[in-house]
């Protein structure tokens, strides 16, 4: 049993890392195709990618959309979770359901719905419209994480603060938010990574300025190229850095 377990674990790691390893390895390919045989190590694809103005612009757009939409989702989710965790509003179960609902719907449907809406109302597609879509998908995530984190301990501390004379904004700023620092950070980082990677909403809801996944998509259309590997590797590097930061800053300290 023991040996089988370790074998299974090893095979699982191989399966999980196989595509990433191939991706990264062939980003250094000294040739035109990112497939075997490996012709030697070269950094020229990275040079090409880093010198590509469109790609770098897309990178900036992705970063902007991810941070701004995550911030909005975080604030809205925090306020709603705070209200529903503490005030016994009529229909609060229904409201929780409504706020979680976008989680159960494909991104494609969210995107198509918004595309219809923007077409109908004549709103021009831009990074902002994609950002709106990203808030829609990240709001349930932020809400769910924060709502789950608001235990009785939290509620009692808020009650105590109110009892001692704090106004509602003071309760939120001085007690609730600091006590929820870890889940807030977790929700924010998760939102950022999801928004950063998201393709279909960004693809359907942007027009001239696009985000990085959309830019990569258009690179794919011209066939396999080590340049795509290089971009993919860089994106992976950024995501992994975010995740490791989250791990170190949030989960390590939470222990």
């Amino acid at each position: 049993m023991r040996v089988l377990s370790w074998l299974y674990l090893a095979l699982a790691y191989v399966f999980v890392f196989l595509p990433v390893a191939v991706l990264v390895a062939f980003s250094f390919q000294d040739g035109r195709l990112p497939v075997p045989p490996f012709k030697g190590v070269s950094f020229r694809w990275y040079e090409k990618v880093l010198g590509d103005g469109d790609l770098m612009a897309a990178l900036g757009h992705s970063f902007l959309v991810a941070v701004v939409s995550s911030l909005i989702a975080l604030v809205l989710g925090f306020l709603a979770a705070h209200a529903l965790a503490r005030v016994a509003l009529p229909g609060s179960a229904l409201m929780r359901g409504v706020l979680i609902a976008p989680m159960t719907v494909s991104y494609l449907i969210v995107a198509l719905g918004l595309l219809n809406l923007f077409n109908l109302t004549g709103v021009r597609l831009s990074l902002w419209t994609a950002g709106i879509g990203h808030v829609v998908i990240n709001l349930p995530l932020c809400f769910a994480i924060l709502y789950a984190a608001m235990g009785d301990h939290q509620k009692n501390a808020e009650r105590a603060a109110r009892d001692l004379g704090a106004a509602e904004w003071q309760v939120l700023a001085l007690v609730s938010a600091p006590m929820l620092a870890m889940p807030l950070a977790a929700a924010f980082f998760l939102s950022v990574t999801f928004s950063w990677d998201e393709f279909i909403i960004a693809f359907l809801l942007t027009r001239f300025d696009v985000t990085l996944p959309v830019e990569i998509w258009s690179m794919l259309k011209s066939g396999l190229s080590p340049a795509t590997n290089a971009v993919g590797s860089l994106v992976f590097l950024v995501s992994v850095t975010l995740v490791i930061l989250l791990e170190i800053l949030v989960f390590r300290r939470a222990k």
């Binding site: 990433v20 990677d197 993919g232 994106v235 992976f236």
Partner: peptide, 16 residues
């Protein structure tokens, strides 16, 4: 860890 790679990139990597 590869969960956090971009969706598009991950599929592309499997193509390779």
């Amino acid at each position: 860890l590869p969960f956090w790679t971009s969706y598009v990139v991950r599929s592309y990597a499997w193509l390779l």
